[in-house]
């Protein structure tokens, strides 16, 4: 089982990210579970969402306290939230940031594996809106080997419809092509 925690801000799609990846995994015949950090929803406030993916049925409804992977959708969250809290020592951070990995390590003291990409630039270019969730899913899917562009096609089209579905697919594929550990 792999446990993932998403960090973002209300309205950026952190919860949607976890949901889409859970639906993708279930579509692939795996077991998965996605849920938000429950509470009043406020646009712009830091939010977390949780995801578990497993080959076996998942019998655990605890929050994710010791994730294998942390996905950061909004770099400003790192200033107010310790995003690597509980992250396993062999875990992975996947960060939306225009800054080099070395700089992120220095600034925030991260010791685990890191993949960073400028998801905001990709989102603005491909989606024309500053919403990074499907871009970050592309990075997550690639770096963690959890899904391919074909696997997300149906869940994306179901969620985003005929118009936004292909755009989000393109955003995912762009990040999927460009992401790797240690890269920026």
């Amino acid at each position: 089982m792999i446990e993932i925690r998403f960090h973002g801000r209300g309205g950026q799609g952190a919860v949607t990210s976890a949901e889409l990846m859970a639906q993708t995994a279930v579509g692939m015949g795996k077991y998965a579970q996605a849920f938000p950090s429950f509470g009043p929803e406020r646009r712009g406030a830091p939010v977390t969402a949780f995801l578990r993916i497993s080959d076996q049925p998942i019998r655990n409804r605890e929050k994710v306290y010791e994730p294998d992977v942390v996905v950061v959708l909004d770099p400003t969250v790192m200033n107010v939230t310790k995003v690597d809290a509980g992250l396993k020592s062999d875990g992975t951070l996947i960060i939306n940031s225009a800054h080099p990995v070395a700089e992120l390590r220095k600034q925030f003291g991260f010791t685990q594996k890191i993949a960073a990409l400028d998801a905001m630039a990709i989102a603005l270019e491909v989606l024309k809106v500053p919403i990074t969730n499907t871009v970050m899913l592309g990075a997550f899917a690639k770096v963690m080997g959890q899904a391919t562009p074909d696997d997300v096609r149906e869940p994306f089209s179901h969620r985003f419809g005929d118009s936004l579905g292909p755009k989000n697919q393109a955003a995912f594929e762009r990040a999927y092509a460009e992401s790797k550990l240690g890269a920026n």
Binding site: E19, A22, Y31, Q33, F35, I58, R61
Partner: peptide, 10 residues
């Protein structure tokens, strides 16, 4: 509430 109502699962 939430721990079941808001879970996405198979």
């Amino acid at each position: 509430g939430f721990t079941l109502s808001h879970f996405i699962e198979p």
